[in-house]
């Protein structure tokens, strides 16, 4: 018996040592430890042994079974690891190969800047209002305190359609349109983005460009409120370190009128080529709504005041992106647009 057990163990050891795949290993397990396996049968036949022999052989058989199980388990581990290695090798990818190229769509840089500006003013409680690009002379000039032959009309060379109609030269006509529609309701707080047109074509002028107009009318609106609103906007748009300064200027539909400068983005106000050494960049025009404009739009200038501002979107985009030729926005060169 002892002899048979030793032989069995040796045989098992050899078979396990030779086996190369997991299925075969399983077959071996069944052959030795399965229901009808050789070791299982030996254990089952123990009942035929004498009472003295039984504990001795019982112990030995259990040891054999345990050793067989350990042997199988170890080999299984060995084989699995060997097989996985093979599989991993087979499934290897070169992680340095390029990924699948996705074509990204992008917004035009002008759209990006427009949306950024709009978002800041929406946050401050301004409503977006849009108006016509072909405009009546009345709204573009007359209602804005620029009657026919007013010298200020020279500042904006216009594309005319007929004697009464033109391509709007600024978004300011929307001030009057919005107030007309809303009067006498208060408060008015709008921004009006859109395309505008002037007869100009060079490095800093495009016959079509974008502006954003802003208007706030209410009881007790002040010039200081205008300054505060613009300062808030500039810090949101260009960063907390930006400062602004207001210089007196002239737009017939506001009084007092101001040109607004921001501290230069590229030199931080020290003076450089971009700002012409002044440390300041001209960025928008603004002022207190002229009483005559409030009046023709349906508000009593004795009871309400308002402020208005207008800015060129291209100008801001050029500063933000360091572009020095406005015409680049309209050639739509994909090699350029791809960068935004």
């Amino acid at each position: 018996m002892q002899e048979g057990m030793d032989k069995l163990e040796l045989q098992l050891k050899e078979e396990v040592g030779n086996v190369q795949d997991l299925d075969e290993l399983n077959n071996i397990r069944i052959r030795y430890l399965g229901k009808k396996g050789e070791i299982t049968l030996l254990i089952r036949n123990m009942s035929k042994l004498s009472a003295e022999e039984r504990p001795v052989f019982g112990k030995k058989l259990n040891e054999l079974k345990a050793s067989a199980e350990t042997m199988l388990k170890l080999r299984k581990k060995e084989l699995s690891s060997k097989l996985s290695t093979k599989r991993w090798e087979k499934e290897r990818v070169d992680v340095t190969l390029p990924g699948k190229p996705f074509n990204l769509g992008r917004r035009h840089p002008i759209t990006l800047v427009l949306q950024e500006i709009e978002d800041i003013f929406i946050y401050m409680g301004f409503i977006i209002a849009e108006g016509p690009e072909v405009e009546l002379d009345y709204y573009n000039f007359e209602a804005l305190n620029m009657p026919r032959h007013h010298p200020a009309r020279d500042m904006q060379d216009s594309f005319y359609i007929n004697s009464k109609m033109l391509l709007r030269t600024h978004t300011s006509p929307m001030e009057v349109r919005v107030m007309e529609a809303q009067a006498p309701e208060l408060p008015v707080r709008i921004i009006s983005p859109g395309k505008v047109y002037r007869r100009d074509d060079d490095v800093t002028h495009s016959p079509m460009f974008h502006q954003i107009e802003g208007l706030a009318v209410d009881k007790g609106i002040t010039f200081a409120d205008l300054k505060g609103t613009l300062l808030f906007f500039i810090k949101e748009m260009f960063g907390k370190d930006r400062d602004i300064r207001l210089r007196p200027s002239y737009f017939p539909f506001v009084e007092p009128g101001a040109e607004v400068d921001i501290s230069c983005i590229s030199c931080d106000g020290k003076g450089c080529r971009v700002c012409g050494g002044t440390g300041w960049l001209e960025i928008l025009g603004a002022g207190m709504s002229h009483p005559r404009v409030l009046e023709v739009s349906g508000y009593d200038p004795e009871k309400v005041t308002g402020f208005a501002f207008g800015m060129g979107v291209e100008r801001i985009a050029m500063l933000k992106y360091g572009i020095d030729d406005i015409r680049l926005f309209y050639t739509n060169d994909l090699r350029l647009l791809r960068n935004y």
Binding site: I127, D225, G228
Partner: peptide, 21 residues
């Protein structure tokens, strides 16, 4: 103009929003 202080408009709160278009 540098003497102009910095304030924000007072009065009723308005909700800023883009138009449906």
């Amino acid at each position: 103009f540098e003497k102009i202080p910095v304030t924000l408009p007072k009065g009723v709160l308005t909700s800023g929003r883009p138009s449906r278009e």
